[in-house]
Amino acid sequence: MIIGIPRGLLYYRYKHLWLNFFEELGIDYIVSPETNKEIVTSGMAYAVDEACITSKIYLGHVEWLLDKCDYILVPRISDCGSAGKVCTKFQAIYDLAANTFRDRNIKLLYYNVDSSVADSEMAAFLKMGRFLGRKKSRCLYAYFKGKQAQKNAQFLELNEQQHLLKENKIKILIIAHRYTIFDKYLGEPILKHLHKLDTVPIIGDIAPKKEAIAKSVEISETLPWAFNRELVGSIILYRDRVDGIILVSAFPCGPDSLVNEIIIRKIKDKPVLNLVIDGQEGMAGIETRLESFVDIIRFKKGEFTWKQ
């Protein structure tokens, strides 16, 4: 049996947990490739026009996996308990994928995390393990191993970021969902260009999560979404150590449409750039905006020099 794992949305958050879980259970898996033009095109063809670009890309990854594996992993998350709610996209994604590819006989592997019916993540993974025909004890071990791997990875990321924060260059905090900023097609060109401009992007999503969530109330009191709370909290955690903030959202991200506005209205002491990416080809427009933003920061710091 081969499990297909779409490289999109929650993959970026849970990849260590997923991959270690399946490895420990001795189940083969394939991960769809980094997002490329074909995946984007097929995602756009299958998705509803108004859906956010990240979910369109996700469907593209699912489509890529369709004939290459036995089951495709599409988990559903209803909320993150005390940390907050999630965008309804994550509540719907399982049934969305199932209905979109119904005629192509899609077979989905899933787990459901829902605090209202006490389906904790662990219980959900055990259920999934049972479906895969593995013993409970082995699944439990695999789950904990995955969890540990995830923690280690987070620790390493944080460490690395601490080093970056010490660098003596212009540092820009990137506030973006992990599945947007780490996507090869959407976010990576932005990070690359920032490097090219001799700046250091600091990833807002790489932050101590619990601390970030606790801090987020300083900017927004009733913010419902856990993922956005983490991002907003990371602004508080990093704001004194960066020179500017870039908000990167996928068009038309529901939560971001409101949260970005709150951030822009409340953060007055740092320059903020609001970038909306919609998966169109060509980086020229975005590059120009990044360049002028970096120029503004340099100007403010008195480092601005006329080139050419």
């Binding site: 509803v48 108004e50 859906a51 956010c52 965008c87 309804t88 996209k89 719907a92 994604i93 049934d95 969305l96 209905n99 979109t100 119904r102 038309p252 529901g254 449409s257």
Partner: peptide
């Protein structure tokens, strides 16, 4: 309304 996430996600179901 434009961009309503839950209702956008319903469309594939309605198509079926």
């Amino acid at each position: 309304s434009f961009g309503c996430t839950p209702e956008t996600d319903v469309i594939p179901v309605l198509q079926n």
